[in-house]
Amino acid sequence: MSGEICPLAAFRAGDRGLVQPGAPEHPAFQRLLAMGLLPGSEVAVIQVAPLGDPIEIEFGGLRLSLRKSDAAAVQVLRLG
């Protein structure tokens, strides 16, 4: 559903969204911020690993694999 805000962990392969201001207390979020996953930037989920975790995401020309427990720290606005 376009326009819905949900954690990045809820995305499936192929979904895209805009990062929302989130919880910087989460250690993963701080590291993601340093890598440039800032509020307002676009992020896409590319693949989900065979056992459902981790996921591979893409933002700003960077491909990153991260666990769903870490992806849960990032809130995203789903794009169509």
Binding site: P27, A28, E56, L62, R63, L64, S65, L66, R67, D70
Partner: peptide, 11 residues
Amino acid sequence: RPQPFLLEMPP
């Protein structure tokens, strides 16, 4: 304790 796991996938 669980740690963030962030790994860049190089081209």
